[in-house]
């Protein structure tokens, strides 16, 4: 492989990885607070992507075709709706099982995930849907690397969202309340923090990030399929674990790493092995280094 190809693969991997990182953010934030793998995150990502198609198409019908405002409006609406859906997920599938053994909320979030993707499947008839092409397909030449303007925008949008979320959690009052709740829920309540609401908010933000990832993915690849939530969810989970689950900046690091790794895998091996390779990476990471690359905060709840 020439240097140029190598750089190209890294660039491709970073674009995909930034999307994974966004989904991973949802896993990691929820896990940080309630110590639960929210399987539903993969489903929320998929629902977000499909809502995106719907609103893009709708705006096209109303003649709103300027690409950037259309993307922004779609992002805002879909993220809001998916966030609301995440709120419902927390209310229905997590909150009543707060004091139950781990298996119960795990199974209920799994059931939620399956419910979400099944509903998408039923509503859309399991047909892949096409995203309208947003920007001119003319590729940009950045030195030796060739990227479409779309993928550049996606990369920066994803990074922007992730950095924004990180700053939100670090600096704002609510963000501090989230970190306090993650660190010690009882003590947080004693400070006057409504921890139940913080948990809800965390699910909502995670869902909104998932929706953003779904739309960016759709814009980048042009199609969305009803099974994207399963693969995307798993890969993003791998990313979250790689970055150290519960660690917000780690989600970005993990996402980019997994993106680049799978991009390399697809150059060295026939394309159809891509998924299997990602799964193998997942198992290896979990088996060898479950605390992640950054190696922080592995909470126990066996």
């Amino acid at each position: 492989m020439s240097l140029q190809e190598l750089l190209q693969q890294i660039a491709n991997g970073l674009v995909v990885g930034s999307v994974y990182g966004l989904i991973a953010l949802g896993y990691t934030m929820v896990y940080g607070i309630v110590r639960l793998i929210n399987f539903a995150q993969g489903g929320l990502y998929e629902v977000g992507a499909y809502l995106g198609v719907f609103f893009f198409t709708l705006m096209g019908k109303f003649g709103l075709q300027y690409p950037i405002p259309a993307v922004l409006i779609t992002l805002v609406i879909s993220m809001t709706l998916t966030g609301a859906l995440a709120f419902v997920v927390e209310r229905v599938a997590y909150r009543p099982l707060r004091n139950a053994p781990l298996l119960a909320p795990l199974v209920s979030s799994l059931a939620m995930f399956f419910l979400l993707i099944s509903v998408v499947q039923v509503v859309t008839g399991a047909e892949p849907l096409t995203y309208p092409s947003v920007l001119s397909p003319a590729p940009l030449h950045l030195g030796p690397i060739v990227l479409s303007p779309t993928s550049l925008i996606i990369f920066f949008a994803a990074i922007l969202l992730m950095v924004g979320m990180q700053q939100f959690v670090r600096r704002t009052k609510v963000g501090k309340a989230m970190r306090a709740t993650a660190a010690n829920r009882e003590a947080a309540a004693l400070m006057g923090i409504n921890t139940t609401r913080i948990v809800s908010l965390t699910f909502v933000l995670g869902g909104a990030m998932g929706a953003a990832a779904g739309i960016l993915y759709g814009v980048n690849y042009g199609t969305v399929t009803y099974d994207m939530g399963e693969f995307g969810g798993l890969v993003a989970f791998t990313a979250a674990v790689m970055g150290g689950i519960g660690n917000v900046p780690g989600a970005l690091v993990g996402g980019l790493t997994v993106g680049v790794l799978s991009s390399f895998a697809s150059t060295f091996l026939p394309n159809q092995w891509n998924e299997a390779i990602v799964f193998a990476i997942l198992i290896l990471i979990l088996a060898i280094r479950p605390q992640g690359i950054l190696g922080e905060r592995v909470a126990e709840r066996a």
């Binding site: 501090k176 306090a180 660190a183 905060r297």
Partner: peptide
């Protein structure tokens, strides 16, 4: 105390 937060953040909380 919130071990993963700074002293200032603990107090502000």
């Amino acid at each position: 105390v919130f071990g993963t937060l700074t002293i200032r953040e603990n107090l502000e909380l």
